[in-house]
Design a protein around this nucleic acid. Sequence first.
RNA 1: GGUCCCAUCGUCUAACGGUUAGGACAUCAGGUUUUCAUCCUGGAAAUCGGGGUUCGAUUCCCCGUGGGAUCACCA
Length: 486
Amino acid sequence: MPKTNTVVTRFAPSPTGFLHIGGVRTALFAYYWARKNNGTFILRIEDTDKEREVAGSIEQIQNSLRWFGVTWDYGPNTPSENFGSCIQSERLETYKKYADTLIEKGLAYPDPYTEGEVTAFRDNAIAEKRPFLYRNHRPKTFGVWDGSRPLRLKVPEIKRYTWQDEVRGELTAGEEMVDDFILIKADGYPTYNFAHIVDDLEMGVTHVMRGEEFISSMPKFLSLYDALEVEYPKFVTLPPILGPDGKKKLSKRDGSKDALEYDADGYLPSALRNFLSLIGWNPGDDRELFFDEQELIEAFSLSGIQKSGGAFNEDKLRWMNKEHIATTLSDHEKLAYVLSGVPDTIKLLPQYSEDRVGKMYPTILERIHNKLEIKEAMETGEYDWAFTSPEVSAELIKWKNDESAATARPRLEHTQKLLQNADFSTPETIKASLWAYAEQVGKGEVLWPLRVSLTGRERSPDPFTVAHILGKEETLLRIQTACDKI
RNA sequence: GGUCCCAUCGUCUAACGGUUAGGACAUCAGGUUUUCAUCCUGGAAAUCGGGGUUCGAUUCCCCGUGGGAUCACCA
């Protein structure tokens, strides 16, 4: 649905693989800005390099965006009545049209050199330690372009360019960066430099949002806008997302993996969205937790975008994910979340049942930040007590104030007696049945041996929670087993 | 190397000439607690350096320094 066209933004990835984290952030910002202004958001596929194209990545990119809740008004499967397809390889006629216009104006010409000759020019310039400029070799007269050779732009004016960036203010570039770049390659496909500008124009894009790596190419873009005699859109330069070291750009190793891998690791889309939005942008106040997409859209502003790059802080992402799990998931969803993190090996344990997991998921969620940590805790045996009778050592049952484990036996037996008549419906009701006794005799004296009898472990959830998870029968049995041992 | 960009606690960041430089994650200490976890309280922790401009610079300007980007028939 076309909206009020005050703002049109786009996300324009090339289908050369999965969508990485940096790309997601760019998409998110462009999407927020469009939605905030009741504008239009376009997903455009820049597939003009057939060599690098990876099959299936268009689907993959769309799936990733959908996972984040990003929706687009026009995209690969939703063409526009006005400008048609959002896939560049299907728009070759359009680029041709613009190329012809430039040729007519005398502002585009076929490159008369072979690739080898141009390379030789370049190597020569490098050897002489001076910047290579194709325009120094520009032919005196232009031949007729038959499509078999690259078509180059004749830059309308060689000058120092100055332009406004919505984030960084006034930016400049020297005339060394102004050169006769290629508009259409010998294979008939346009270059990024040409295609993206033609498309932005055709699609009515008002805000071009992209990473800072494009700043140095701006003279190219501006000279083309000038050659076409069109208005510049607004430029919004986004800072890079850096690796944890805060220097290099985020690499695969430290988080720039497929956005969907985070799903597998148990990161909630809302948490990752929240986290990524806060790298290179902030709402201007102390708010950090944005559980809802709408809040983010409302808070978003161009003035909150940062100039400098931000590191990917996985600790903060983990914290944020925990917060999102706690506040955005229903009880049912929390249980499903934990269940999906239980390794198969655990499911083989004799007392394993979903019912038991259903009683213990809150205590598990209290201790983890993502699904990976559930798996890890389970695999290291942290929760084995819940699914199999523990091996209880008498040594461990001994409370620090006791002389030996046997000292605890009468207390355990009394505890067992109290629990026989206890209400096991919640940890609190179990606690109620034991609390008076524990306070009278000593909490550590009663609760430590009980907890160890039930779990066999030095560290575990509190005994009331454990007893509730195990149920009355199993609880009493385990206490008996422990008593028999000491 | 040329051109360009950036610079506040370890990290993400607030401050848009006047603040004891604030918040969050991480970290440390204390408290609650039978242990772990949770939770609560508190602490330590930053304006890259040097010059200007100004009554007054985190903030404006210049020079350094450091980091980054870019110089393709890739995007």
